[in-house]
Design a binder for these strands. Structure first.
Lengths: 249, 249
DNA sequence: GAAAAAGTTGCAGCTTTTTGCATGAATAAG
DNA sequence: CTTATTCATGCAAAAAGCTGCAACTTTTTC
């Protein structure tokens, strides 16, 4: 295993768990603790991690600790994000909507992956900015104070000029009959535009959002190719969606 | 559990409850009270908590905001931002560039003011979002990892469709002879476009940036209407700029 | 393509840090 | 004033870190 390969692995581990122990990594990667220590020191010098006695901590976790701690259901969201990452492939063009789950996705992106991300979300864009090898395109427009994303005709018309391989939607409500729904008209417009211009639609949802409906429709369940929750795919609650032909991860 | 992790946990506990007891933490974290005591003493030395007999108290009770401490020369930047705010008027359309000084400006914006801000800067936009009565328009485009702003043709062409009353530029280098200069080509393109579409140009600069020159030219000193530093307007160092007809605040 | 240089890795020996415990002093509470 | 905590200190064991070194691999140079 190459040194750089190993360091990427370490970075990835840190992004997922927010910390690593020298002893764990030593076993997991099959090298001595000294080597791990040296790696961590190098990464710390490059300001990519924070070295502490016994291991290292994630930098993004630390710099924004105050917010991170406040993220609701963070653990579940990290699980969801981890599953979603498996769908990403080298060179893809990906639409990413707003929401904390998507920001979490941006945070745990494998360092090696180089893809192009289009997003109207400020926080997702900022998180993606820290990723070394990906391109980030921010969709500009009037900023919705409420949602923290750009909205309006400009976003929609900008989206109409691209075609994405994948569209990753954070969802507030999803139901096997009613499809994906939301409560903010402007957000709905943006999501609709994203859906219309992507080959594959992936919905991320906490299990508590399942089988709930809100006022405004984003899309039919038939348009959703893949549903990701923190539940194991064979959970009962996911059955109605499978029956509608949605792939469940 | 890592030491730093444990201290993080203690800090969070303190922020929630405003106080902690050594005995509680000892049980909750599964370490001896001595260890907790040592942690609390360390945190107290770093001025993060207030140590008292039997435990510790929250410090943020009295003083809030941690992240501000991390901004370089924050005090000077706040002074600059405070002066710049006086130029803003009701209903104005304002271009704002990136940089921490401009973010500081966004932070101290008078709550009553309702203006429209166009910015390519992610952090400025996020800060402006918290302002109750202003409109924020984010200029979208490829995101420059380096500068944290949108760059590229789209930003420029978008700017060409508006005309602003005011353009507030954070500057890295300004010189009475060479004008405003910068080191990042893409940032320069965006700034140029902003300057070309605004009636009044305001440059914000720390005094240490005065009389310095970098490789790429943003604009001539003649194009700058107003220069704001943290210095009093009659400071000697500002004389060369006054002579060139720049208003100095 | 061989020799030299540079980089990588594990190990032994030693230093530093961390942690829990024992002891006695300091402090708060009744 | 008495009593029960709480605190500071020193100490020892364990864990983690650092350093130099030797073995090995990769890259560069001639």
């Amino acid at each position: 295993m190459l040194k750089s390969e190993r360091q990427e692995h370490i970075l990835r581990e840190i992004n997922i768990h927010n910390k690593v122990l020298c002893s764990d990594l030593s076993i997991k990667l099959g090298v001595s603790e000294d080597t791990i220590r040296r790696d961590l020191n190098e990464l710390a010098e490059q300001d990519k991690v924070i070295k502490v006695h016994g291991g290292a901590l994630s930098k993004s976790y630390h710099t924004s600790t105050y917010r991170q701690a406040e993220v609701y259901s963070l653990q579940e969201k990290t699980i969801i994000a981890g599953k979603a990452v498996t769908l990403l492939q080298e060179g893809m063009l990906v639409f990413v909507s707003g929401g904390t789950t998507n920001r979490e996705l941006a945070r745990i992106l494998p360092p090696g992956l180089s893809a192009t991300f289009f997003t109207p979300s400020l926080s997702t864009a900022i998180q993606l900015m820290e990723h070394p090898s990906s391109e980030v395109v921010l969709l500009g427009g009037r900023v919705s104070r409420n949602a923290g994303i750009s909205v309006g005709g400009e976003v929609v018309s900008r989206l109409s000029e691209v075609r994405a391989d994948l569209c990753i939607l954070g969802t507030n409500s999803i139901d096997a009959e009613e499809g994906i729904t939301d409560s903010d008209w402007e957000v709905v417009q943006v999501k609709k535009a994203m859906i219309g211009r992507a080959d594959k639609i992936v919905a991320l949802a906490l299990s508590e959002k399942l089988d709930s409906v809100q006022r405004m429709k984003v899309c039919d369940i038939g348009q959703v190719d893949c549903l990701i929750t923190e539940l194991p795919p064979k959970d009962k609650r996911l059955l109605p969606y499978k029956k509608k032909g949605v792939e469940v991860i």
